[in-house]
Computed example of a mutant assay.
Amino acid sequence: MPLITANTKGVFVIAVTPFRDDGAIDHASVDSMVDFYFDKGADGLTILGIMGEAPKLTQSEAIEVTRRTLARAGGRPVVVGVSAPGLAAIGELTKAVMDLGAAGVMVAPPSSLRTDDQIAGYYRTVVETIGTEVPLVLQDYPLTTGVQIAPKTLGAIFEAHPSIVMLKHEDWPGLQKISDLRDAEARGRRRVSILCGNGGLFLVEELRRGADGAMTGFAYPEMMVGVCRLSAEGAHDAAQDLFDAYLPLMRYEQQPGAGLAVRKYVLARRGAIASVAQRRPAVPLNAAAIAEVEFLIARQQRKLEALG
């Protein structure tokens, strides 16, 4: 299984975790979901993230989902989220998934961190815990974690720990942060891969600022694949047109609390997973919300047909 590096590019889809209606993991849907994402052009997957309902899984379930995903991925890279309140759990899960063949692991900072020294110290202990041979993704998602990491602090962390090869950039607004990080690299700081989240809402601008791709979970991954390809070709108007066709549904999917239900509904509708079920506590879609999603999907299809 290939490892991620500081030069990794493309679309790593944040995968949902499929459940049956009774709350058990749906192993058959793990297979169909992996097939779906790669059939739509994904370069890799990221599992057990926030939208993968990782906190609702036991450690043994997390390992089993990883094993099943890696087996189905057929040698393509899979990053595993291993964030946890304690370093012991991070270390244990990291060893298990890397032994299974993961391409790297992702860790978000705990919400208790407040100062630059605390943030830098935390990632120093993470690297010490998991080992310098493990490729690490630093997840910068202040809207969820509450931890603000300035570009200067990120740069210091990157310089101190070469095994941190990727930033999952989810600051909002955060476009200037991408520019600042790339400017620092132009002045001599080592390069890191930057893949962006936030449901892809700012993907066009992020790519033009220097991002290497997307690491997020919109239910139409082919949009992100197409936008990344067109942007790399310099076809920025075409990339924007493609992005615009999907934007209303992307916006709808970004609702706090309801977003995962929307994503799972669309993925089930597209045949990627068998059930829309989430593990409790969960916020299901009601009939009015489903009607709104169907309306947006229909409009999206008409826009795509107009694009040809």
Rank of each mutant, 00 (worst) to 15 (best):
F158Y: 02
A306H: 14
A88T: 02
T58N: 09
R189C: 08
R72Y: 01
Q118G: 06
A102P: 03
S193I: 08
P162C: 11
A268I: 04
P135K: 04
L154E: 15
F19D: 06
A103S: 13
E53V: 03
H27Y: 06
G188P: 09
P2S: 08
S111F: 14
P110H: 07
H27E: 14
G146A: 12
M98L: 10
V147L: 04
D31F: 00
I63F: 12
D140M: 00
A108F: 11
T17W: 00
Q176N: 14
L45Y: 12
R182A: 13
I297N: 11
L70I: 05
A103C: 09
T94K: 01
V266I: 01
D244H: 09
Q278M: 12
L230R: 15
L167C: 12
P109Q: 00
A6V: 08
L48I: 03
P162M: 09
F12I: 10
A150W: 04
R302M: 14
P85E: 07
L136W: 03
A150V: 08
L57Y: 08
K152Q: 15
M223N: 13
G81S: 05
V266N: 01
S193W: 05
V97M: 04
P18C: 10
S60H: 12
P248A: 11
G217L: 06
S29V: 01
T145D: 12
A28K: 03
G81Q: 02
A150H: 03
R302S: 14
R270N: 06
A258M: 06
P85G: 10
